[in-house]
Each structure stands twice: as structure tokens, then as C-alpha cells.
């Protein structure tokens, strides 16, 4: 029976990434079926961002395979991955600093969805509409003309989200989308991600903020030294000895236990 099931949207098979003698990702395999939100956690330097680099084509795996809907994309360039339907949001505050907020989203909308063999003289109205919609979706409507370099942290994160969403990706990679934000701001971003996922977009997200990770993820993957420490439902995190010892620590372990017990209000 299972042979007729379509392949998972994303599949990593025995992926290894070495930087000289440092093994940043060590023989890692996992599947991401369409429609899921897979949360990735793990201590600093565990190899989470490196995993994104390898998937998004910014870095090539030393060995192993990455499949997108069964197609081998291990050696694809970032541009090809982007046109294949993947949008990555970077860990650091990235943006085109000298462009306005709107132009940031416009370039992504224009170039991100398909390869432009010869770029046109002006943008189609459909592109501008998509830009409007993306800015509205993240709550940046009205900031169109602001210079990106001068944006406050939250707006920068929202802008990064908007320029990823405007590409209409099937797979969204989020690297610490709420790092450095306040509680209220985190909820704002979580709400956006939830809504995006509800439209059928598959999400792979890295986050240290457990509240965000636990509440959004349908499944969690914890990495340590480039290896899989835990894979399963968020509810199992607090009961896993390794995860508590290596990553969460005792206090955070209890906090996560409370979160997964649906008691978030009290500890939030």
C-alpha cells in the first residue's frame, strides 16, 4: 500500500556536512510530509542553521541526499531552490537595506516565483497586488516607503516574512523568526505562521523560544552535535532524559511540560 503514497515534500537522507574536520551535520535523515510544521531545536552550534544552508542550496552537503518531492535537489543553487518553491527566512536580520520596505517585497515577488529570462521594464499588476497582500498579511501595510535599514527589529522580521510569503512557497524555512522579540510580538508572528500553515504551506522552523516551538510544531526534531537527539511530538520533549539534560535543563523542562499540558496561560 505505502508504495503508492506520494513522496514527502522534503526528505533528507544521510546528510553530512563537514567544515574541515568539524562535522556540523552528521548523517542526518528525516522526512517532512506536506502540511506539517516541523520544529527544530537544539543547543547553539548544533548545526541547525547549517542544515538550512544545505537544504536551501547556499552550501552543498558533503554527502547524502536532499529530495524535494522525490526529486534530487542536493546540488541545486539557491536560485533554483527558490524557484522550486522553497522560501528561506534567515536567522540574522537580512534585507536589502537601501531599498524601501515595498521594494524589498517587490523584488522577491518578481524574481522569487519563476526564472525571469529577460527582466521586463515594469512589474505586472498581479505582482503589485501580491505585494499588497503580503504586506497586509504580516501587518506592515502602510510602511511601504520606509527605508529598510531604519526599521525596528519586529518590522524587520515581519518584512523578511513578507518577502518569503510573497513568493508563494510550498516549503517555508524559518530560522529563529522570533529571536529577540517580546511576548506580544512572538504571538503576533506565531499567528502569522499558523495562518500561513493553514493555507497548506509546509513549514520547517528553527527556534530557541520553546513557547513558540512547542505551540506551533506538529512534530519536533532536536539536534545535538549535528545528530538527531529527539524526533517526535512536542509533548514527549519534557519526558526525554537526553533532551532535558543536553538542551532544556531542569527548569525549562518543567516549563515545556506545562506548555505541552496545555497550561500555557499560567507559565506564559
Amino acid at each position: 500500500m505505502s508504495a503508492s503514497i506520494s513522496p514527502p515534500l522534503l526528505s533528507c537522507r544521510n546528510v553530512t556536512k563537514q567544515f574541515g574536520s568539524l562535522v556540523a551535520i552528521d548523517d542526518l535523515s528525516f522526512d517532512l510530509p506536506a502540511g506539517e510544521i516541523l520544529g527544530i531545536g537544539g543547543p547553539n552550534g548544533a548545526g541547525k542553521t547549517t542544515l538550512f544552508e544545505v537544504i536551501s542550496g547556499h552550501n552543498t552537503a558533503t554527502s547524502g541526499q536532499i529530495l524535494l518531492e522525490g526529486r534530487d535537489v542536493t546540488r541545486c543553487s539557491p536560485v533554483q531552490m527558490c524557484h522550486a518553491g522553497m522560501a528561506r527566512v534567515f536567522q540574522l536580520n537580512t534585507g536589502f537595506d537601501s531599498l524601501s520596505v515595498r521594494d524589498n517585497v517587490r523584488v522577491a515577488a518578481y524574481y522569487g516565483r519563476r526564472n525571469r529570462v529577460v527582466p521586463g521594464i515594469s512589474m505586472e499588476p498581479a505582482v503589485e497586488e501580491a505585494v499588497d497582500a503580503a504586506l497586509r498579511d504580516v501587518g506592515l501595510a502602510g510602511s511601504d516607503d520606509c527605508l529598510t535599514a531604519t526599521l525596528p527589529v519586529l518590522d524587520r522580521k515581519l518584512l523578511m516574512l513578507a518577502s518569503a510569503l510573497v513568493m508563494k512557497p510550498r516549503l517555508l524555512l524559518l530560522d529563529e523568526p522570533v529571536g529577540g522579540l517580546t511576548h506580544k510580538e512572538i504571538d503576533h508572528v506565531a499567528e502569522i505562521v499558523r495562518r500561513v500553515a493553514a493555507t497548506g504551506v509546509t513549514v520547517l522552523l528553527i527556534e530557541h523560544v520553546m513557547r513558540f516551538l512547542v505551540q506551533l510544531s506538529t512534530r519536533v526534531l532536536i539536534l545535538h552535535h549535528g545528530r538527531k537527539l529527539y524526533e517526535g511530538p512536542a509533548a514527549g520533549l519534557a519526558n526525554d532524559r537526553d533532551v532535558v539534560d543536553v538542551y532544556l535543563g531542569k527548569g525549562a523542562g518543567e516549563y515545556v511540560a506545562a506548555l505541552t499540558a496545555g497550561d500555557a496561560q499560567h507559565v506564559g
Binding site: 524557484h83 534585507g95 537595506d97 531599498l99 523584488v107
Partner: peptide, 22 residues
């Protein structure tokens, strides 16, 4: 035009520009 925007995007941040299809 879109082309000028791509030039500026690549100038500002080539790695990020690649992730947005340029």
C-alpha cells in the same frame, strides 16, 4: 525597473538576493 531593483538587491546582499531568485 525590475532590473534596477535586482542590481540594487544584489549590491545590498548577494546571499539573500540568491534566496529571492536573483
Amino acid at each position: 525597473s525590475p532590473m534596477g531593483l535586482a542590481f540594487q538587491a544584489l549590491r545590498d546582499n548577494p546571499v539573500y538576493a540568491a534566496a529571492r531568485g536573483m
